[in-house]
Design a protein around this nucleic acid. Structure first.
Lengths: 247, 247
DNA sequence: GCTTGCGCCTGACGTTACGTCAGAGTTTAG
DNA sequence: CTAAACTCTGACGTAACGTCAGGCGCAAGC
């Protein structure tokens, strides 16, 4: 006839679980975690079973699920959980890459600021580079889902930076060639065109889905955000087309 | 007498910068980016110089600063920026580690769910492990700032897991020794104590700052969150102390 | 029996960086 | 001159609580 299980009031219970009382109120209101009993005067009473559920909630939150998602996940056992986890893992990895690039950006900025005089101009250049990385985002709508995934997997900050350097270098050389009135059919021009398509292939990784996305992306230039400048001039493009023998 | 610089209306300008009109309104109200002019009817007019500032804002946001922080950073040039960047880098790295552990947790959970039957019990164990990783958080207040950093740098998910396994194994053995009434002065007991202190040293990495923090942490047991159980019983602790020859 | 002090309760507003209407005026092309 | 397209200013919504504020509940000391 005695209480066969100890029960805790809000503060005790919250402390045991490492959360605040207010959080308990919140979860109660959301229907996410109702105390197993109330006293006549409205005090919340929690028991061990509640603790288990609360820990599950905390864990799922740690993994990054919203309280809404957690609520449904705790009802539907198993099957849905697997898909949810997969999705969540991808989302997290995405965020991690984002943060990785942010760190890279900061490190670069720190380097510039510390070594030279606090040069606002140099900082601006970094800004541009970062923005270009940001632009990965809006281009995603051109790629199929699996292509996006593949791209994201390979797109470590180092790879991105290397690619940008390579392109910058090549474009500079082509610009010089254009200025010099180089004949697009010359040996040198063909070499440039070869390097160009090599970089393109390096980006696509030979993947047809990525190639298709890239094509769509470039076909739709009129709809680009317009703050995104094609990194080379029309003359350069024409020159490369000519050198590559495309019309 | 003509407009010597083109000016853009909200939509055009927003598109150029890759943000929405609403964002411009928002920044305007916050005083973060005022358009360089308004028409008589209240329309916002932006120019190139505004675009530069907006891009800076976007970049700083990308790095993870809040709009408030950005506002002050854009006023104070240089000096403060350096400190802010350093702080921000640490914060981001922290978040990245968090996400890394979350991914690890998910992968483990996926493994359990897919291989065996969707076992809720097994999942619970994972939950506990994750929660222990979470507990890194509240312990931070015991460590000096530099100690926290050093710890964070070494605390990859793999290392944490390995450490937990090692401890679990050792504690199990000590518990067995206690049950068997093993003499704390015996050869075997001393060996256990040696392994114990080895694991402690492995954790501290021989760093005096970390050691100091750990000491403070254990000295303050009465203030622990209480949902954090010391992973070994008092008997185990006493046994080890005896075996190590401490009073 | 009453006060003191601590803990509990329920709103209700604050936070961040905008998104999303709603209602109303402006500009422009036809 | 009208319809389409663009703009403006509020005002409320979002996620997950934190932070008061006002009002009981409860055990202990007077």
């Amino acid at each position: 006839m005695k209480d066969q299980e100890a029960s805790y009031q809000a503060q005790q219970f919250a402390t045991r679980a490492g959360v605040t009382v207010r959080t308990l109120h919140h979860y109660d209101r959301l229907g996410l975690l109702k105390p197993s009993a109330y006293t006549g005067t409205g005090y919340r009473l929690y028991r061990e079973s509640d603790l288990a559920r609360l820990q599950q909630i905390v864990t799922l939150k740690y993994i990054g699920f919203s309280l809404q998602e957690i609520k449904t996940l705790l009802v539907q056992n198993g099957r849905d959980l697997a898909t949810a986890l997969r999705r969540q893992r991808k989302i997290i990895n995405q965020k991690r890459r984002h943060l990785g690039m942010a760190v890279q950006a900061i490190e670069k900025a720190e380097l510039v600021i510390s070594s030279e005089a606090p040069d606002w101009e140099a900082f601006k250049k970094i800004i541009e580079v970062i923005n270009m990385q940001n632009d990965m985002e809006w281009t995603r709508k051109y790629y199929s889902e699996s292509a996006t995934e593949k791209l994201a997997e390979r797109a470590t900050p180092e790879v991105i930076e290397q690619g940008q350097n390579d392109w910058a270098q090549l474009i500079k050389e082509v610009e010089a060639a254009v200025r010099d009135g180089e004949d697009p059919t010359s040996e040198k021009s063909r070499s440039l065109a070869a390097r160009w398509s090599h970089l393109v292939r390096q980006f696509t990784g030979g993947d047809p889905e990525i190639s298709a996305g890239l094509k769509k992306l470039y076909a739709d230039q009129s709809n680009w955000p317009a703050h995104f400048q094609k990194p080379y001039s029309d003359e350069v493009e024409a020159f490369i087309c000519a050198a590559a023998g495309k019309k």
